[in-house]
Design a protein around this nucleic acid. Structure first.
Lengths: 222, 222
DNA sequence: CCAGAGCCTGGTACGGCGTATTAGTGTGTC
DNA sequence: GACACACTAATACGCCGTACCAGGCTCTGG
């Protein structure tokens, strides 16, 4: 008896949620390349990866669950203002959620939007524009304009983030090297990439989104 | 003498271009997951991967060279018409180039635009809008709107493509399964995803781009 | 109360990956 | 004719995703 260790646990404390949660933690800290099934297993204190494969068929499934979880952050209430204001709020929420989790943005390029939160998000866009009077191809065009703009902006940010991260350099060192390559002052480049800077990505995003929204006008005919 | 094989080649017939070309061939055929250094080596008839590492420091470098090569396809002449027409041509060219090479689109999410063709492309956008009279933040917003829309549309297409490809199912079988999940007729889904269909992605892209371009208006002040 | 069936864990193994290393070989230069 | 250099081939290392298998815990039916 005293020679045998206490059983590690009574029974299945390992849910699918635990696994996805641990994966998201690793992804936020170390990015897409930092995630491996063994790494998740270690994080959860379970010795073998086989425990994971019981709840999750494949690593890819785990990633899809992760992305959709992040997309939930984009489903914010939009108030009852002007439809353009509502779209601005909803667009910004998705953009910021994706910027918080660049790995999820990267996965958007390889995983079609079949998850519930992804679908709920586009459904909200359609709903707002429909109540605003958009129909038929005009509705399609408006949804396409807003949604693809949001995705494209997030993807571009994720690319910068990922490139800098992959270089392994401190941000300022990287900015010097890249600035030289692009023939730009490093300070200008840093400002261009710093979210809360007036010349930064968030300001560009909102300005671009506003321009798109102002241009949208409901048409009666399909 | 006769026991020894003829030397494989006189001298270095293996250029960096050859390697990138072979890689692009594999990527177009088998996608991002199909590419490995060993696979490229086999394609080029060289037994060991070390031959590749002589011209290309890392697999990542190879991918970056590949992406920029694809972006060259987007650098089409835009004629001397209205600036909106020019942007429509340039935007569509990039969208179609990226749709032809979904792997490049996926890489856009992890590799910042430091390559020459990427830079040349955005420079063209800036040039067209500048001659049209855009300045300061209005210029930034307009470039952001057009460019991010193009990227987002291509990324969304690439995601569908990649998801279907990963499933390993024939297109029609996949459409049935996905249609059931999304509660949509498989035919409608197929039409939605077929490029040359009137309800397909290309039509949505051009409609959305037109809506954005119509909304753009040069402002004098910054 | 016990046997058997299920869910689930831990360990190990396989084939493939990116890439470092090392040993060798042909070519061009002094 | 020797040496440096440019390059190829082979092999090895440490990771990866995941299949497989041998148990053990817990619940059910008799």
């Amino acid at each position: 008896m005293w020679l045998r260790a206490e059983p590690a646990s009574t029974r299945a404390p390992l849910t699918r949620e635990d696994i996805v949660g641990a994966a998201i933690g690793i992804l936020d800290k170390e990015g897409l390349d930092g995630l491996s099934m063994r790494r998740v297993a270690v994080e959860l204190g379970t010795a073998a990866t086989s425990a994971l494969y019981w709840r999750v068929a494949t690593k890819n499934d785990l990633l899809e669950l992760g992305v959709d979880e992040i997309l939930a952050e984009a489903l914010v209430p939009t108030g009852d203002g002007d439809w353009r204001d509502q779209l601005a709020v909803l667009g910004l929420a998705a953009y910021e959620a994706l910027d918080r989790h660049p790995w999820a943005t990267q996965l958007l390029a390889s995983h079609a939007g079949l998850g519930p939160n992804y679908q709920a998000y586009t459904a909200r866009l359609v709903e707002i524009l429909t109540t605003a009077g958009f129909k038929g191809i005009h509705l399609d065009a408006a949804v396409s304009a807003v949604f693809h703009y949001v995705v494209g902006a997030a993807v571009t940010d994720a690319a910068w983030h990922s490139t800098i991260h992959r270089s392994g350099l401190p941000d300022s060192t990287w900015a010097n090297a890249a600035g030289q390559h692009l023939d730009i002052e490093p300070e200008a480049l840093t400002a261009y990439l710093t979210p809360d800077n007036p010349a930064g990505p968030t300001a560009r995003f909102t300005a671009g989104l506003r321009v798109i929204l102002v241009g949208l006008r409901p048409r009666r005919l399909s």
